[in-house]
């Protein structure tokens, strides 16, 4: 990858210039669609942007200097990780990537959750700490099936490059692995029924309880970028078809991401929050089961051929 391409990917598409408005659009779509399904009007489309501006304009809460470094630094790290993860996605057919970018992507996708755990403990609030504990437990729970699915994908494509995986032929392994990643989306995005670590009625907003003003604005942005990155990941890995033109790929990618947002919103609107044990049981049973089948099929491709 040339430097120009890296900068283009980071700053323009699918990086900063594309990702931030899309993040706000997705946050709005989630709120608006949920409101409509509940018989309410819902906010206008510029609401997340206004929220961001308003939070940015708020006064900072005075804290010991070491704490405020952490509390401003962690959401910023989280935002940057989201942008970096997006830059790696093989959206159009001419993206090249580099060997091992899959590993980097998985690492970047895990950073927001890690930052959230750290922020919860750094905030010195009992609710933040309980939320951080829950987030840490959940991250172990969902990462096992998630990583197993990624391994299965990489093994079946015989490559650690995202482009190769995206270009690999469709099959049982890929379908099962993408399904597992889809299963992990609600818990990674902390929406119902797995909104355990930010359960409002139990522990306020969990790790983000003590955050306010610009720090909270950054968390919101990081959350929006997580939406963009994770739905993008599923679309990139799940879609075997590429138009070949840049603009066509872009259109398909964006519209499918928004469809995924709507599907996730329907799930979140139609369920109650589960307890952490129940969430963990779900991922150990279904997530693990699916991803193990994918891995076995990936390692022994003969089985799939035999079934066919």
């Amino acid at each position: 990858m040339s430097w120009e391409k890296v900068f283009f990917a980071l700053l323009i598409f699918p990086g900063l210039l594309y990702a931030v408005p899309t993040a706000w659009l997705m946050l709005w779509l989630e709120r608006k669609f949920r409101a409509r399904m509940q018989g309410r009007i819902g906010p206008p489309f510029y609401q997340p942007f206004f929220d961001f501006v308003k939070l940015m304009a708020k006064r900072r809460v005075l804290r010991p200097s070491f704490d405020s470094i952490f509390m401003m630094g962690l959401p910023l790290v989280s935002v940057s990780a989201g942008l970096l993860a997006l830059a790696l996605l093989p959206i159009s057919s001419d993206s090249r990537g580099f060997a091992g970018d899959l590993v980097l992507l998985v690492a970047f996708l895990e950073v927001p959750s890690l930052c959230s755990v750290l922020a919860g403990f750094a905030s010195r609030s009992i609710f933040g700490q309980v939320g951080a504990t829950r987030e840490a437990i959940l991250s172990i729970t969902y990462n096992l099936p998630f990583l197993t699915a990624i391994v299965a994908l990489a093994y079946s494509a015989q490559s650690l490059r995202l482009v190769d995986i995206a270009a690999s032929p469709a099959g049982g392994v890929r379908a099962l692995a993408v399904l597992t990643i889809c299963l992990c989306l609600p818990v990674k995005l902390r929406i119902n029924p797995f909104s355990v670590s930010n359960a409002e009625q139990e522990i306020y907003s969990g790790p983000a309880t003590e955050f306010s003003g610009p720090q909270l604005a950054m968390w919101e942005l990081a959350h929006g970028l997580e939406w963009v990155a994770l739905t993008g990941l599923v679309v990139c890995l799940g879609l075997t078809f590429r138009t070949g033109t840049w603009i066509g790929d872009f259109a398909i990618y964006t519209s499918l991401s928004l469809v995924l947002v709507i599907l996730l919103t329907i799930l979140a609107t139609g369920t109650a929050r589960l307890k952490i044990q129940q969430a963990a049981r779900f991922y150990w049973r279904w997530g693990m089961g699916l991803s193990l089948v994918a891995l076995i099929l990936g390692v022994f491709p003969d089985i799939e051929r035999f079934i066919r």
């Binding site: 409509r36 309410r40 609107t269």
Partner: peptide
């Protein structure tokens, strides 16, 4: 949910 979508919002601006 589907019914609510079809009926439109019940609230007022």
């Amino acid at each position: 949910l589907l019914k609510n979508l079809r009926m439109g919002p019940a609230t007022l601006r």
